[in-house]
Design a protein around this nucleic acid. Structure first.
Lengths: 245, 245
DNA sequence: AAGCGAGAAGAACACTGTTCACAGATTGAT
DNA sequence: ATCAATCTGTGAACAGTGTTCTTCTCGCTT
């Protein structure tokens, strides 16, 4: 898409008002895009305004024309990551699976970009761009017959779990990089298993279960625990009014 | 405790081996302590090695004799915050309440220091100092009759919720400082309620429930959801072997 | 009393986010 | 077609940051 800029405009072609701008104009979108490139290549710690500017072949200060803050840039990245989520029409029959899909999809999106989970924990809770998604999520939960006060909390609970789990997950990979997961796993398992059994009987006993399973499995089980808890608030939305005081 | 250092040693008193050291020696503990002072006064963004050093009246480089990294310092702060937790003897009768108390206590500790939740999300998942607590937590969960594979995940789930909730909670207070909570609340509620009802029926309907309640209530409800989910894996630990595939 | 070794000091390096006055090109109007 | 105005990108600068290096000084042991 950049090579056609180099081709001189043929004389019989009416040149556009803005005749073939040698530099594609800087936009928020292009900045966000470049930020993702830097993030994936160098990681969050190296994601600086200067690096992003260098990626675009542009001066640092140029970025500040389009973006107020580094914070705003991070926010834009987060928003773009969840730009195109499409939540299904609420279905009372399969609401539990719909909820789980929401969380699964969120995790996958965060895993798409390196260190993205760390950025996600920094974002301001509610942003206008994300409102439609929250709206849909609430629709699903209400369709499932959950009491409103549970629904109002469930959104927070789910996204907190999703982001928190993914953060921890990607932190492991980060702290012990240049090792495959199986290597990390067995190393950790050995560590737990080698603890003095008299002082740490439970840790020793659960050593294999803590690291033996895949992240997918662990995420799925945690998700199931939450959804079961939600479901326990049942379809009959009045009988439990006084249980959580 | 510092004024007796200024009093000259009386001649008839045998001076100690180290005679009245004008400077109390720098230790890890003192550095951590100073870091907490800076954190509480200036917040996480201003918590720099230089500020900590200034708080102690000491050069920056002196800190690095006792502390490898800023990362290590943060880790030490996190550890000290949970130093003196005492989890109760596992009791099969009240395990649910014991679990809840664990999470409640954790939240309170994080709230004790400004921005502490932000630091907590940065810590490495398992550290030797925290092993005894995990051990006890597992004991409680197993005493409650939970299957081992659920127990192995529950620890993560609980601390993720606790830390994530507290982070979000303290982020609100931070973003809209110089406003009391009731002001923030009503402002937010107005915002949600003012959304176009045709596009956001659920958000409008739940507006008051989302912000009307206190953080304590919301935390408690989320906790209840999780504990219910855990409890649903029941005391009969074999019947649900194939439910979460 | 001399010497040794640990701990603190100060300066330096290579970064960071952000702002400023200035130049350059692109636009609209004359 | 020329001029003015507007905006966008530039380069330099400021005030910080984490970390390391060499120097120096102090307290303790021999």
């Amino acid at each position: 898409m950049s090579q056609q800029d180099d081709v001189p405009t043929a004389p019989w072609e009416r040149p556009r008002k803005r005749q073939a701008p040698a530099r594609i104009p800087l936009t928020r979108e292009r900045i966000v895009e470049a930020a993702f490139v830097v993030l994936d290549r160098d990681g969050y710690d190296k994601l600086s305004m200067r690096q992003v500017a260098a990626e675009l072949g542009v001066a640092v200060s140029a970025l500040y024309v389009h973006v107020d803050d580094k914070d705003e840039l991070l926010q834009l990245m987060y928003n773009r990551l969840f730009d195109d989520v499409e939540l299904p029409e609420p279905d009372p029959e399969t609401w539990q699976e719909q909820i789980k899909d929401f969380a699964r999809d969120g995790r996958q999106r965060l895993l798409r970009h390196r260190d993205m989970a760390r950025i996600s924990m920094q974002h301001v809770p509610f942003t206008a761009e994300l409102l439609p998604h929250v709206e849909r999520l609430f629709g699903i939960l209400r369709a499932g017959g959950l009491p409103d006060r549970v629904t109002a909390i469930a959104g927070d609970l789910l996204s907190t779990y999703m982001e928190g789990f993914t953060l921890e997950e990607s932190m492991w990979q980060d702290r012990m990089k240049d090792s495959s997961w199986t290597v990390i796993g067995s190393r950790l398992e050995n560590y737990f298993a080698s603890l003095p059994p008299d002082r740490f009987p439970n840790l020793v006993a659960l050593a294999d279960l803590m690291v033996g399973e895949t992240n997918d499995y662990r995420f799925e089980l945690g998700l199931d625990i939450i959804v079961r808890g939600l479901a326990s608030y049942g379809t009959h939305s009045d009988s439990d009014q006084d249980e959580a005081s």
